[in-house]
Amino acid sequence: MRVGRASRRAPAGPSSPEIRTRRLEGTTLDGPRDHDSDPGRALEGALDRARAGDETGFVQLWRALQPPLLRYLTVRGNDAPEDVAAETWLQVVRDLHSFNGGVADFRAWLFTVARHRAVDQGRARTARPVVPVADPLSHGRSAASHPSAEQDAAERAATAAALRLVASLPPEQAEMVMLRVVAGLDVAAVAELVGKTPGAVRVAVHRALKSLSRDPRIRATREVV
Rank of each mutant, 00 (worst) to 15 (best):
R71C: 04
T74D: 06
V75Q: 03
V75C: 05
R76G: 06
G77I: 11
N78M: 06
N78L: 09
A80T: 08
E82W: 06
E82V: 10
E82P: 01
D83H: 10
D83S: 07
V84A: 13
V84G: 00
V84W: 02
A86K: 01
A86W: 01
E87S: 08
E87T: 03
E87Y: 04
T88M: 02
T88K: 01
T88W: 03
W89P: 01
W89C: 01
L90T: 13
L90N: 10
L90P: 00
V92C: 08
V93S: 13
V93Q: 14
R94Y: 05
R94K: 09
D95V: 07
L96C: 10
L96K: 10
L96H: 08
L96Y: 07
L96T: 12
S98L: 09
S98F: 01
N100C: 02
N100K: 12
G101Y: 07
G102V: 04
G102C: 13
G102T: 03
V103I: 13
V103M: 06
F106V: 10
F106Y: 15
F106E: 04
R107D: 10
R107N: 12
W109R: 14
L110I: 04
L110M: 12
F111G: 05
T112Y: 05
T112M: 04
T112C: 02
T112V: 02
V113N: 03
A114E: 08
R115M: 07
H116I: 00
H116M: 11
R117Q: 15
R117G: 03
A118V: 05
V119C: 00
V119G: 00
V119S: 03
Q121W: 10
G122Q: 13
G122E: 11
G122A: 11
G122V: 11
R123H: 12
A124G: 07
A124F: 07
T126L: 15
T126M: 14
T126P: 00
T126Q: 13
A127W: 11
R128T: 06
R128P: 00
P129L: 05
V130S: 06
V130A: 10
V131N: 00
V131P: 00
P132N: 03
V133N: 05
V133E: 10
A134V: 10
D135R: 11
P136Y: 07
P136N: 08
L137M: 11
S138L: 14
H139W: 10
H139D: 08
H139F: 13
G140N: 10
G140I: 12
G140M: 09
R141A: 15
R141Y: 03
R141L: 14
S142E: 14
S142N: 09
S142P: 00
A143L: 15
A143S: 13
S145I: 01
E150N: 06
E150D: 14
D152L: 14
D152P: 00
E155A: 09
R156Q: 13
A157R: 13
A157F: 00
A157W: 00
A157H: 04
A160H: 08
A160W: 02
A160I: 02
A162V: 03
L163G: 02
R164M: 06
S168R: 13
S168P: 07
S168D: 15
L169G: 01
L169N: 02
P170A: 11
P170R: 08
P171G: 04
P171N: 03
P171Y: 01
E172V: 15
